[in-house]
Design a protein around this nucleic acid. Sequence first.
RNA 1: UGGGGUGUCGCCAAGCGGUAAGGCACUGGUUUUUGGUACCAGUAUUCGGGGGUUCGAAUCCCUCCACCCCAUCCA
Length: 749
Amino acid sequence: MSESKDFLRVRVEEDLESGKYQEVTTRFPPEPNGFPHIGHAKSICINFGIARDYKGHCNLRMDDTDPTKEDTKYVEALKDAVEWLGFDWEGNVRFTSDYFPKLYEYAVALIKMGKAYVDSLTEEEIREYRGTVTEAGKRSKYADRTVEENLALFERMKKGEFKDGAHVLRAKIDMSASNMKMRDPLLYRIRHVHHYRAGDTWAIYPMYDFAHCLSDYIEGVTHSICTLEFENNRDIYDWVLDTLGLTTPRPYQHEFARLGINYTVMSKRKLLELVEKGLVSGWDDPRLPTIAGYKRRGYTPESILNFCDQIGIAKANSMVDVAQLEFAIRDDLNTKVPRVMCVLDPLKVTIENYEGSEVLDAPYYPDDVPKEGSRKLPFSSTIYIERDDFMENPPKGYFRLTPEQSVRLKHAYIITCKEVIKDKEGNIIEIKAEYHPDSKSGSDTSGIKVKSAIQWVSANEAKKVEVRLYDRLFKDESPEGLEDLNPDSLKIIKDALIEPAVIVEKPDERFQFERQGYFYADPIDYSDEKPVFNKIVGLKDSWAKKKQLPRRASKSETKKVQIDGEVAPMSEVEQSLFDKYIGELNLNSEVANTLARDAKLSGFYEEALSHHHSPVGIANVVANEVARELKEKEVNEVKFNTKQIAELVKMVDDETISTKIAKQVFEEMINSGESPIKIVEAKGLIQISDPAIIGPIIDEVITKNPENVEKFKAGNSKLLGFFVGQVLKATGGKANPKVVNELVAKKLK
RNA sequence: UGGGGUGUCGCCAAGCGGUAAGGCACUGGUUUUUGGUACCAGUAUUCGGGGGUUCGAAUCCCUCCACCCCAUCCA
């Protein structure tokens, strides 16, 4: 785990420490209407991970409130995904549909409180009445039905007496709320549809906003973690729980940014489209970012877990580079998986001076992987090497076989090219070579230096295998649609050649094909007669990188131009205030502007001024510190008053306290409402300006940090702040920073 | 346009008034019978822009800009 905690864990810890909850309970609440993808994996890691880290619980809950979309096959896929990632949901899988009876009771309770009503507007009318983001909506005429009427109607809705869409149950909140979600949200709709689990018992189904918060509550969830797009729904979440009087301990919703990865798509809609149009082979197509896809491709659960851990959790919309995922799987497999040799694009090599055959012993793992194991490797005069590993006219820096350059056959001998055989078209079809008998791997006395060792297979013993090479599904970094599909996302090699041990011994299901990448025996199509391997990910290839030298020359460095918008003009009153502040009171224009434009602040300012005439000092405190407190609160809601602020500024003016201490005192005033003079007295915060006291403290800091002294003297002037900070810390902030600054600068010279 | 969010290196992401963490990617170098791995080194005088407060600002204040979400009887 990374050393810094994410904001969710910080929050959970706070809530546990404050005693808000005894134990943390989270939940992973997917709707079973599609296959889970790696975005779900992130959510799974967060929810189950937090439960694990804080010894709490995490439920797996199917949020199945829309019978038209959900299906059992998706719940199975969801369960598989959670299990595969190694998490345990303790007990049964939960289903929102199991709570339908309870949910119905809550709805009735809301109706009885007069907080919900049956609306009979048409769908279009409801939309119209909702208004727009800038215009308020208007309430339906059905909103003032009596409680009895609503109860009766709702009961009949439940019994299935009405057609779909005839009525809905809505919360009675506020049709002019600036949050659109709060404009009398729908709670229940009529659906004469078979539910994959609840069967035909219900004719009405709850909406997400009603069901979700209550399901959380029913399960004793403490932290309801969801993605950013639900931020607007948080108000309803709280409204439902609050108005139903469902108090402590109750769940609260927290949102994080969903995962985006480049060169792929993550939305269920787009994934479904790919599957349904047959553009991929199914939900488990190895090119898909679905859990089933990664699993089929050969990714390990550990690699996905590590990936999720590495990308972190935050609230900024982001697009993670696939390279990060690819790193995670390489990193995991590197230490786990046997190395074997497979030739994808075979080129025949005849070793003319070799006779007979032999069997070499070759370790499965390189020296830097602490694992044991080896296999028998047949060698003979006819072998195949990778077509790429021979070049007749090599570019500079080519390390492999050429007419002039020998190579080592990995685990075997060094060979030298003697002749290049071509067909009529001039294609190379065979290499005639010679081997060096005294260059045998492990007992090489030949003294020949080669630049690389390449993979090969012996022609007679090699097995034919199918290898499926996968590449990114889309050619565009952030694909818009099907037109961005990568036409080369799948390449099938029907007759690759692999060393026999892989097929006969089956030492593992995942391998590194030496110098090529990591591969996985396809769990479905693989058979002994017809082995099939999926490419999981390629090895990093700095040679390939070097070849595509034409670095993107034009970096198209279009420095974004910042456009400055219009600043709203001041009203006449504000303008005259502004003029007065600048002219009479000598404030700088920025502070004057802040004060003049805010009636609350200017009122506060002028009153404080009447207690202590220090126009600039008070203005600065009001415009910078008081402003923060008055953003969300009214003057009478705040614990401090103008007189106290005046006193505070007076102490700064007298140099009784430093501005740094003044801020600290102000914080205290916000919380306690205590007078600043008392706070300073009680805590002994009077400023220390005497160099005789400060000097020794500085000396101590200097002797404790010899390295930083060096750096400072070497020219790192930023460190002045470090020393000043240390001294201030040592004096509890009381040292006069100006004096400290001067003294430190002098002493370090 | 009203409301709710978010802007720190090419990509993620810490940081919450006192020396700009870390990972991926990238660039050198060392080791290497994988052009892999491992290891070492390098990479933000600067935190969306502009002002202000402060001895000191990525962090506090003001202001502007950009992007995302919300007007499904989806979740």
